[in-house]
Computed example of a mutant assay.
Amino acid sequence: MLSLSKIHHIAIICSDYEKSKKFYTEVLGFKIIKEVYRKERDSYKLDLALQNYYCIELFSFPNPPKRMSRPESTGLRHIAFAVENIEKEREKLVQLGITVEQIRVDEFTQKKFTFFEDPDALPIELYEE
């Protein structure tokens, strides 16, 4: 068995780099650590942090294939972020014009959660701690 200590980062390929960059920084509140353009790949790489913790790499590539999201498909299902007050955070998303599912309660933990999508329909979950 490997001795893993934590998840280091999540890599996301987007179809519209500027739109996704704005979403992850201005809507979700990630801070930019480093942004580079890799000429040989015609690709941007944006390193993002949440609460000073490096956790997302946002990539652009020319003409990436679409990711199936619905119906649910094999592979990464969604990314989830912990929040203290899910109603408050859901309302912020709604005010920004983002479609957010109704808040549900996890049948096993009794914790509240909801889903919305990034600009490429990647499912994102908010989970109340």
Rank of each mutant, 00 (worst) to 15 (best):
P62H: 05
N85A: 13
S60L: 03
P71N: 07
G75H: 00
I79N: 01
P71E: 05
F59E: 02
A82Q: 15
P65R: 07
Q51N: 15
S73V: 11
E89R: 11
Y53L: 15
E57I: 12
N52V: 08
E84I: 14
S60W: 02
N52D: 15
C55E: 02
R70F: 10
A49L: 08
Y54R: 13
A80F: 10
K88Q: 12
M68R: 03
C55K: 00
C55P: 02
K88G: 02
C55R: 01
M68Y: 02
A49G: 10
R67C: 00
R67I: 00
I79H: 01
V83Q: 09
E57Y: 08
R77H: 15
N63R: 14
T74Q: 05
Y54V: 04
F59N: 06
I56E: 00
F61M: 12
K66T: 09
K88T: 06
K66Q: 12
F81H: 07
F61Q: 08
P71S: 06
F59R: 04
P62E: 06
R67G: 00
S69Y: 04
V83F: 05
N52S: 14
E84W: 09
N52A: 12
E57N: 11
V83N: 09
S73F: 11
N85G: 13
C55A: 03
K88I: 05
R67A: 01
A80K: 10
I86K: 09
E72S: 07
S60M: 04
L76W: 01
K66F: 04
F59H: 11
L76Y: 02
E87I: 15
A80H: 09
Y54L: 11
R70Y: 11
M68L: 12
F59A: 06
E57R: 04
I56Y: 01
A49R: 05
I86P: 06
R77N: 14
K88S: 06
I79P: 00
I86L: 10
H78R: 04
E89M: 11
R77C: 08
C55W: 01
T74G: 03
R67F: 00
E87G: 10
K88E: 12
E72V: 06
S69M: 04
R70A: 08
G75E: 00
Q51R: 14
R67Y: 00
G75A: 01
A82P: 07
P64R: 02
